[in-house]
Simulated scan of single mutants.
Amino acid sequence: MKKLLLAATAALSIPAMAQAHFLLEYTENTMIERPGDVPVKLIFWHPHEAGHVMTLEKPEEFFVIHNGEKTDLMDTLEETTFDGPDNSAKAFLGSVPVKRSGDYVVVTVPAPYYEESEDIFIQQITKTYLNRNALPTDWDQPQGLATEILPLNKPYNIVAGSTFTGRVLSEGKPVAGAEIEIEYMAAEPDLAGTGAKAATVGALPGGAIVAISDDNGYFSFGVPKAGYWGFAALGSGPATEHEGKELSQDAVIWIRAWDLE
């Protein structure tokens, strides 16, 4: 028991890739006050370093789950461009209809991306969460994805200075020993334009923060700062090959932390 508890609560700052790939499902807020269509920008980027932008092809799936019901949002996607400090690349702008109270789980299943420098494909199945009127409905339920991180804390109103715990799943089963890269969204995209706002923190020595899931798939992380945090469980999915090359099928979740005021 002691071993499991230590593994579940450890957030290990061990060296990883200097720049971690993350698929962003960016909205300006997670708590929605008025009903309407919420814009979501899909970007494949290095959000902490605000570095190189990868080309995002049209996703295989883009949908939302509310009260257990799935709504396809592919027809809301419009191709756009996202400008990083060194390059520009294809991105997409979509929208999520938020009308009734409750949780809205936004899911993107991207087409596999070929990373030439590593000679592998990457597919980051990504979730983010919106809520209207502070009524919880769906956040603590798995969404039946090939791989996903199931949150054990409400992911849209984490308190900065507290902890976030997730469970890595592959086809609904826990993944032991998964490597989870953790990054802060230092530069938030500008929904009205094609670039990003100024970065609020500098690059972290040693690259991405990394945690390892325990024997039951759990990991925890002490959230030090308000804002958006991304967690990517690398290679946690069942698919391992695409077009004859290695595929890293990752589970990504974005959470929103707030300062107490």
Rank of each mutant, 00 (worst) to 15 (best):
P97M: 07
L56Y: 08
P112A: 07
L73M: 10
M54P: 03
N87S: 12
T126Y: 10
T80W: 13
H66A: 03
R100F: 07
V98W: 07
A111C: 13
D72K: 06
D86M: 15
P97H: 10
G94V: 06
L73H: 04
Y104L: 13
I120N: 11
S101P: 12
E79S: 08
R132C: 07
K99I: 07
V105H: 05
T128K: 06
F121D: 05
T108D: 06
I125M: 02
A111T: 15
I125N: 04
N67F: 12
V53H: 07
R100I: 10
S88N: 04
S88R: 06
F121C: 05
E69M: 12
D75L: 06
V96P: 02
V109Q: 00
I65Q: 05
T81K: 07
V53C: 12
Q123F: 01
V53N: 09
M54T: 12
V106K: 00
P85F: 08
F62K: 03
E61C: 01
T76R: 11
E61F: 01
S88G: 07
E61A: 07
S95R: 13
P110R: 01
D103K: 00
P112R: 09
G102E: 01
V106T: 05
E61R: 10
S101F: 10
F63R: 04
T108Q: 06
T80M: 15
G102P: 00
K99W: 03
V106R: 01
E115P: 03
I65W: 03
F92Y: 14
N87G: 08
Y114W: 03
K90D: 06
E60C: 11
G102C: 02
N133R: 14
M74C: 13
D83E: 14
G84W: 04
Y129E: 05
V109P: 00
V96N: 01
M74D: 11
E61M: 05
D75T: 09
R100V: 11
I120F: 09
H52T: 15
I120E: 12
G51T: 05
T128M: 07
T128W: 03
F63V: 03
F82S: 09
E116L: 15
T126S: 14
V64D: 00
Y113T: 11
V105K: 11
V107A: 04
S95N: 12
P59F: 01
I65N: 04
E116H: 14
T108W: 00
V109K: 00
L93F: 08
V105Q: 06
P112Y: 07
V64N: 02
E115V: 11
